[in-house]
Design a binder for these strands. Structure first.
Lengths: 197, 197
DNA sequence: CCGATCATGTAAGTGGTTACATGATTAT
DNA sequence: ATAATCATGTAACCACTTACATGATCGG
């Protein structure tokens, strides 16, 4: 569903083939919505079935014909309605937390190792995010107006914030385990301060 | 996969039937891993197929027989290995960010409305988390040792932090749109401070 | 009388992944 | 030689969701 809307969003800029879409999706929304190639093709034909896009077949020799998809009036209407809608409530599945939940079955050292590994992974992701940030796609690309770029940038910023905060939490938690603060029972850290930096 | 490990984790405490599991999963890990009833039954029979659990059929009249699952030696081994393993890298699909990405197609007022709606949703989730926190399951339940409860509590705390931080970000972002800060191009907020409260 | 509780499952469908198939052209 | 680029897709599979089916018992 979400992927279909993302594709519709790009078709709203200009027509695309499936192949082209794979490339632009990879360098735009990949950090919060990795899109598989075969999933893109499926979504495109579904959009065409639903009348939200039309196919223009461009004949080619020596390689398969290109299929260029154009958004339709209904497509544009449906898309714009969707962008302005109140967002669906989010997925909350965090496999890592299952490990945390049962970490009581491990020794302090083993549990800390799990948290450290997780922290290392997050640091890696943060580095990759920083790299995207410096890449031409976010930054000063093409003739994209600043307001548009602002919202593109927000998606990166949101991810970075979330990661950085989770990393902070991991580091504090590792400290707490080191200090055996669990002996006092839970509820050691105050809930994050709502306002206030 | 994750659900299977979660189930294995509970079977490691004591034997359970599918029906019982549905109940305990709902009041323990539901906030980061909602488990569907039919998915639980499937996972249980898969665990039995893989030899990680055995089935004890308890005959009953007037209602279907109960099937009580016991963890096996291999099950216990596989589970303990898994808890201590370095965590898999996480899913990063955030449908909301697709909306943000294309929010440039909306007016300031429409975009702000989307962010406000998202903020309202998060506030709702935070309230529900606070309610879980006060419920007997987290808190001082049963004869569960404090170290165990500490890790249970961590799963809630992690979620709360993440939510609260996303909410902070949303509120700041709404302010920035109101002030039309996008006119200066992106990169307005400094990346979240790494250390420092 | 209605709905909850106990207790199991099947069937169909969604959204996504992994692997495979084809095959010419161009760059290293 | 080899890998990447261009360009399309299918097939099988996976985790999960939604809806359905059965049917007794018990409390409001």
């Amino acid at each position: 569903m979400s992927l279909e809307y993302a594709i519709l969003g790009f078709l709203n800029y200009r027509p695309f083939s499936g192949y082209e879409l794979k490339r632009v999706l990879d360098e735009s929304i990949h950090h919060f919505w990795p899109a598989d190639q075969s999933q893109i093709y499926k979504s495109l034909s579904r959009l065409a079935d639903r009348g939200l896009a039309t196919v223009e077949v461009i004949a080619q020799e020596d390689r398969p014909n290109r299929k260029v998809y154009h958004i339709t009036q209904e497509g544009r209407k449906e898309f714009l309605q969707w962008v302005g809608r109140t967002p669906d409530s989010e997925e909350l599945r965090k496999p890592f937390l299952i490990q945390v939940f049962f970490a009581g079955m491990l020794s302090d050292e083993e549990a800390i190792a799990v948290f450290e590994d997780k922290a290392a992974e997050l640091r890696g992701v943060l580095e990759r995010y920083a790299a995207i940030d410096d890449s031409p796609t976010h930054g000063e690309k093409a003739g994209v107006p600043p307001r548009e770029r602002f919202f593109w940038y927000l998606t990166l910023e949101c991810g970075t914030w979330a990661m950085q905060r989770e990393l902070d939490w991991l580091e504090k938690t590792i400290e707490r385990i080191r200090n055996k603060e669990y002996e006092a029972g839970p509820r050691i850290l105050p809930p994050p301060q709502s306002k206030e930096s």
